[in-house]
């Protein structure tokens, strides 16, 4: 959406995570509020990679953090196993119960060097998650798990035992971050711009590694990036966000081959190597994102939209299905 609605949510046994009507607002003084994420809904199927793409300030990182309750969202639900009887709504949990649910979701951050404690040895960093869950001593089984995960991401456990993060390159540090996330045996891995700080030759290795780890440990991924090519490469399904709202949701190939929302089209046409499905005429965005403290009425994209009509200012578009598993929130979608 740059609009509302939950029609894009799927049903089925294998939905592992469902985010419903997520709202995240931050007060910034004088009764002003930053509307970082406004009424966003999506779900994640087991074994699927969901890509979230958008410009800076669109709320993609805030969404990722709200899923892991860092901080908990202003309103909305974040539900694990929504179709089972013992579904868990993370937003209703606190204290001990929330801690118990946390190992199921792990996160990888953009800057691999600053996300590792420079004063600790790499193996201690990777073991820490398990230590928390076993009162200090992770036991033989835990040590084996750490070695196995380190080996899987391509870091020598012997080197990891004696070295600190600064002795590794950026790509290796990102491997360590991935190992740290995997030791507690998560079901969902949330990757927030995991390759944006890496050189292109390293980027390909980390993306391939994520695909391998996803298969090996049966993970489901939420993958956030501003890089359209990277998102298409890793994702099964893609969510396009703009100023705290969802514009378009669909299967990765379908969405890139037949983008329907004018914002998606503009993004794809602005890429250094534009997508074949759009023309130069689609790259029409001006520079400026409106302020999230005072978002435009109606469709939030209308101030930069080439197609905007009066209706867009007064009525927020509802999410509609325009093709099988392809949803768009726009009064004038291209078909």
């Amino acid at each position: 959406m740059a609009g509302r609605g939950t029609i894009q949510l799927r049903s089925g046994e294998d939905i592992i995570l469902r985010v419903e009507n997520l709202v995240q607002e931050f007060p910034v003084g004088r009764d002003r509020v930053v509307h970082a994420v406004s009424d966003v809904s999506f779900d994640l199927r087991k074994g699927e990679t969901l890509g979230i793409v958008g410009e800076s300030g669109c709320g993609k990182s805030t969404t990722a953090r709200a899923i892991v309750q860092l901080p908990p969202p202003t309103s909305g639900r974040v539900v694990l196993d929504p179709s089972s009887e013992n579904e868990i709504d993370l937003t209703r949990l606190s204290g001990h119960d929330l801690r118990n649910a946390r190992p199921r979701l792990q996160m990888i951050f953009q800057d691999p060097i600053s996300s590792l404690n420079p004063r600790r040895r790499v193996k201690d960093i990777v073991s820490e998650g398990l230590e928390i869950w076993s009162d200090g001593d992770i036991g033989t089984e835990g040590r084996e798990r750490v070695e196995e995960v380190l080996h899987a991401v391509g870091i020598d456990p012997v080197v990891a035992a004696s070295h600190r993060p600064h002795q590794f390159s950026g790509g290796q540090c990102q491997r360590i971050s991935i190992a740290r996330a995997l030791t507690v045996n998560p079901e969902i891995l949330i990757c927030d711009e995991p390759v944006s700080a890496l050189d292109v030759s390293v980027q390909a290795k980390i993306l391939n590694l994520l695909e391998d780890m996803k298969a090996r440990y049966e993970l489901s991924l939420v993958f956030i990036s501003h890089d359209l090519s990277v998102v298409r490469n890793v994702s099964d399904r893609v969510v396009v966000m703009y100023l705290g709202k969802i514009c378009e949701v669909g299967g990765a190939d379908r969405l890139y081959d037949a983008p329907a929302h004018p914002y998606t089209r503009a993004l794809l046409a602005s890429a250094p190597e534009p997508a074949q499905s759009v023309g130069v005429a689609d790259a029409v965005l001006g520079d400026d994102l409106p302020s999230p403290t005072d978002p435009p009425s109606g469709c939030r994209f209308r101030t930069r939209c080439p197609l905007a009509i009066d209706r867009c200012a007064t009525e927020e578009p509802l999410m509609q299905e325009i093709d099988e598993d392809h949803f768009v929130a726009c009064h004038l979608p291209s078909t």
Partner: peptide, 11 residues
């Protein structure tokens, strides 16, 4: 080595 915007996902 660069992901291509026009290549199918999971290439």
């Amino acid at each position: 080595t660069i992901p291509k915007i026009n290549s199918a996902s999971h290439t």
